[in-house]
Simulated assay, not measured.
Amino acid sequence: MAVTRRQKEVLDFIAGFVERQGYSPSFEEIARGLNLKSLATVHKHITNLQTKGILQRGHNRSRSIDVLPQPRAQRAAPTRERLPLMGRIVAGLPVEAVQTSETISLSDIVGNKEVFALEVSGDSMRDEHIVDGDYVLVERTRAARDGEIVVALVRGSETTLKRFYVEGDTVRLQPSNQEMLPILIPAGQVEVQGRVLGVLRRY
């Protein structure tokens, strides 16, 4: 399961501490090691990692944070790198179908960019026809122009998919759903992690 940058730092610190010391660190040691001022922040990251099945805590013993072994990804079945592009279809009145010998692949869409995929949860972008269960193709970048759909890390711990606008010292993360309000947040508390290039949907 995906983790945020800060959660990965917490996880790496715990794993490295255990490897060096032979026992798990306390919350205070994690806070000092990562320059975190609040133990509540450490607790939040630990709880989130525990919820994701990456950490385990024993409630009846001290220094009881254990990194759980993660299952190895199953070997994927062979997939076609390219799919036959059979032509174009009109989403209106029927027209004569003409087959072609062209092909298409994801690289034709994303080019040479560094791209990753995320599964969408929720309906905040439904007016962009991005709905729960879709997959977005995201270019890894820390820069975005106003109006682009981005993956944004908010306050170092929460990620969201929204349209991005800079308004002075504030960033507006705008949902594409008339039932939802925009997120207004100081620019220093928002980090762009990527911008959306395309959407995949499985029926």
Rank of each mutant, 00 (worst) to 15 (best):
L55V: 05
A40V: 08
K37H: 06
R63S: 08
R61Q: 11
T47W: 13
N60D: 09
H45N: 15
V42Q: 06
G58M: 01
S38R: 08
L39I: 10
R57V: 11
V67C: 06
K44R: 15
T51V: 07
L55I: 06
Q50C: 11
T41G: 11
Q50I: 14
G58F: 00
D66R: 03
G58D: 09
V67N: 02
L68Q: 01
Q70M: 02
S64Y: 03
S64A: 10
L49E: 05
K52R: 08
R61D: 01
P71V: 00
R57T: 12
V67Q: 04
K37T: 08
L68M: 05
L68V: 08
S38M: 06
G53W: 00
I65S: 02
V42H: 08
H43V: 14
H59I: 12
R63W: 11
N60A: 11
H45S: 12
H43T: 13
N60E: 04
L55P: 02
H59W: 08
T51P: 00
P71N: 06
H43A: 15
Q70W: 01
A40M: 10
T47S: 15
H43E: 15
V42L: 13
R72E: 06
K44A: 15
P69H: 05
N48R: 12
S62F: 08
L39M: 14
D66A: 04
A73N: 00
K37R: 11
Q50S: 13
I46C: 10
N48P: 09
L68E: 00
R63I: 02
V67E: 02
A73T: 01
H59S: 12
T47Q: 14
L49S: 07
S64M: 05
